[in-house]
Design a protein around this nucleic acid. Structure first.
Lengths: 108, 108
DNA sequence: AATCTATATTGCAATATTACGATATTAATT
DNA sequence: AATTAATATCGTAATATTGCAATATAGATT
């Protein structure tokens, strides 16, 4: 099918999965890494950086914005994007729970 | 298209993206959460836990295994799966870099 | 060795994602 | 007001993902 049965999972599971999925594309990882380096960007900066069309970059930025990875503020005729730390803290929290759980345990 | 132009990105970007994508599905988040709780599982445990067919669960387990999120050890006639902390540490490291970068900066 | 149990694989249909050209929108500049 | 610059959206094609029934495989049990 290709249809994910979101209705069978908890809100938390769906939210976390959406967030991780949004980060699960090399172009979007590259955008985040650009923002780590440069703190902010406009769409055109990423168009110059990555070998993808303006339309495609705009789409990736929208996906990142939709889940809260980045936020965009209108500045004149362009839009300044920057990272939102909240979602990264959310992911880190989950990872911490996993790591703690595994540490307490040897398993198979 | 649907084709990701992986060749244009660094190995690091592709690896991290693959890892995050593998975790970017609610069923696979649910599997990881089951393992946080129960430390280990066999395929049948997850089949009983989630409203998905055995074939689908087996596929999700394979994806998680492929990127190293879980490891499987043959135990008689079934396979014991458990979490591999390494990849979670890798993700945490990246998240830490992001958070540190944002903290140093206010931006738009 | 036949059967049972547990898991993996194959084949397929439905849906989602990725990418881009073309076009629209919106603000700044002339 | 016309033009330019920056970004978003639409439409479309190609590929990927999700899910399942059916079947295959492999070890355990009888």
């Amino acid at each position: 099918m290709g249809i994910t049965k979101s209705e069978h999972f908890t809100d938390h599971q769906n939210e976390l999965a959406n967030l991780l999925k949004a980060l699960g594309h090399p172009a979007r990882v590259a955008i985040v890494e650009y923002l780590i380096q440069h703190k902010q960007c406009i769409c055109g900066d990423i168009v110059n950086e990555l070998p993808l069309s303006q339309a495609t970059i705009s789409q990736h930025l929208r996906e990142l914005k939709q889940v809260g990875v980045i936020q965009g503020n209108i500045e004149g005729n362009s839009i300044c994007y920057c990272l939102n730390p909240l979602v990264f803290k959310q992911i880190t929290k989950f990872m911490g729970i996993v790591i703690e759980s595994v540490t307490k345990n040897k398993c198979c």
